[in-house]
Simulated assay, not measured.
Amino acid sequence: MLRPFIHYGIHFGLPLLVALFFFKKEWKKAFVIMVLGLLIDLDHLLATPIFSNNRCSINFHPLHTYYAIVVYILLLIPNRTRLIGIGLVIHIIADYTDCWLMGF
């Protein structure tokens, strides 16, 4: 019961905190860009079933593989892609936490 609150709390709460603390002048824009990291969940449409409550996304879906995670980390380096990278890394942290809470 607590797992969804933690999972979605990280998905939305952590980007909000990062936006408020590090991007004060444009926190709304920063928040929206980081939350757009949720779009990598479109790769769930390739799975059968599309949603499984007990499936760990990490290294199962194409945009959640370790190779993709390396790309997300590299996006943190250039200033132009940093917000996108932060959003994607936060997404992976949320999914990894969800896997950890499942016992994987």
Rank of each mutant, 00 (worst) to 15 (best):
M1S: 14
P4S: 09
P4L: 08
P4R: 09
F5P: 00
F5I: 13
H7F: 08
Y8E: 02
I10D: 02
L14K: 07
L17P: 06
A19W: 07
F21A: 13
F22K: 07
K24A: 13
K25G: 11
K25R: 13
K25I: 00
E26M: 00
W27C: 04
K28W: 12
K28Q: 12
K29E: 11
K29W: 10
K29P: 00
K29A: 11
A30L: 05
F31L: 15
F31M: 10
F31H: 05
I33K: 05
M34S: 09
V35L: 13
V35M: 08
L36K: 01
G37S: 08
L39N: 07
L39R: 01
D41L: 04
D41G: 14
H44K: 07
L45C: 05
A47V: 00
T48Y: 13
P49T: 10
I50P: 03
I50S: 04
I50R: 13
S52W: 09
S52H: 14
N53Q: 13
N53G: 12
N54Q: 15
R55C: 01
S57R: 01
S57A: 13
I58K: 01
N59M: 04
N59H: 11
F60A: 02
P62V: 13
P62E: 02
H64K: 04
T65M: 05
T65D: 03
T65I: 07
Y66I: 04
Y66C: 00
Y67A: 12
Y67Q: 08
A68S: 15
I69Y: 15
I69H: 11
V70K: 06
Y72C: 06
I73H: 02
L74I: 14
L75S: 06
L75V: 09
L76P: 14
I77Q: 07
P78N: 08
N79E: 14
N79Y: 11
R80C: 00
T81L: 04
R82C: 06
I84S: 07
I84W: 12
I84N: 00
I84V: 15
L88H: 09
V89E: 06
I90W: 06
I90Q: 06
I93V: 15
I93P: 11
I93D: 01
A94M: 06
D95G: 05
T97G: 06
D98I: 00
C99V: 03
C99E: 02
W100Y: 15
L101M: 15
M102N: 11
G103V: 03
G103P: 12
G103F: 03
G103L: 02
